[in-house]
Write a protein that binds this DNA or RNA. Structure first.
Lengths: 128, 128, 128, 128
DNA sequence: GTGGTCTAGACCACA
DNA sequence: GTGGTCTAGACCACA
């Protein structure tokens, strides 16, 4: 499930967070599902337990999972909603980047084509 | 001109690089213009000369400025072109982010509206 | 391993870069090998950590090493190839120097003798 | 005669020295010839007089020119010989570079071809 | 433990 | 005046 690239500049704990978010968005991890334990993940991913723990703590802090001492961590009921909100906040940064794209000479047509590509796949998804 | 946020997670030297790039894209800094000296910027921005130096070195390495020891740093003739190319490469990352936006429930309409806003300003510009 | 000459006009950080390149070319440092840490080198060479850091950053930028913050720096898989390419580009400069040699009265025979010496060692190597 | 590139990383005074050396090696400047005055060169090359002066002083120090206060600077009788000697000393550095070339996979044939090219032009020269 | 950033301040070469 | 190098030493994020 998780794919860790130790040589990446993205910190390992950050990779775990990002991938967990994707799994939730994609519906692979759903409300109430139990996350694999720190020890399991540590062995499976060959990652230091402290690093896994850091990712877990951060996911908990963001309200995406609920950690019950002695039982484990579970995808929270508000996970999907929390993610939608936080992702939406990234729009501001994307807009700033796109403004720079425009200044760098990228045409509106080019951007629109990219948007179409992204949402075309979406339509297929809906048909399934 | 430059606005440094010392509390940002973006390193100070990186902020200087990014803002210089923007100034070039916006036409505030043009080919042949001399950059403010390391010492001047250091005082004005309350940033250590070494940190300014690091930004200057990196801008030179990217070909955006030409640094002549003892004379100063000047916006290079290829600055605009180099920036256009490097900015365009960011499109890949933006697409990846937008895919996640879609997964988080952001509608195509919403994105298109944002694109329109960005390029609407562009049209005004052309009319002037 | 590293030999630093603080009195040289070649900057210390540049000496470290050059010697690292040699170690790679000579096969002393091989793909995947971990470089000594910034702190170790700093102590061993009696050079400030910042100076070592500068060399490390530059080697990473050139693609000769892969630096993973928190883990260390490792000789990259493309190191040998990247070096071969960049070294070959020095040929132009060497030719220019040799032209001046000729103008200064150095005979072709003398140069050829030098070339023979260099590649004679190579032949021995092949026989082993 | 002199061609100064103010944007070059090679210091202006160093450019003047190198070009003067070439002029001597090429026989354009000969024993006894008077160098243009600091003021003349300063104006012609659009270079600060101090910078010209520095080059002159260095050429004098190397014995390539003789400066007679109130009269001017003249190519010394030992200029050609001094240059031959100093150039020859660069052979050590060139050999070191060529050894690295070999390590980088440059073939002996390739080097020999370059040598042939350099000295082929030489033969033509002798015939003139 | 690892690398990355930053300040404070010195000194150099060059114009 | 300009940029470039270096030391000393602090503090941070990450594993």
């Amino acid at each position: 499930m998780y794919q860790i690239d130790v040589m990446s500049r993205v910190p390992v704990y950050e990779q775990i967070i990002q991938q967990t978010e994707r799994f939730i968005l994609l519906g692979i991890l759903r409300e109430g599902d139990q996350m694999e334990s720190v020890r399991h993940l540590s062995v499976k991913l060959s990652v230091n337990p402290n690093t896994i723990q850091k990712a877990i703590s951060e996911l908990d802090r963001r309200g995406l999972i609920c950690t019950v001492p002695g039982k484990g961590s579970f995808i929270s009921e508000m996970a999907m909603k929390a993610l939608s909100i936080s992702k939406r906040q990234e729009l501001v940064g994307i807009k700033r980047q796109l403004v720079e794209m425009k200044m760098a000479g990228v045409s509106k047509l080019e951007i629109e084509k990219m948007i179409d590509e992204i949402y075309a796949e979406g339509k297929k998804g809906e048909q399934l």
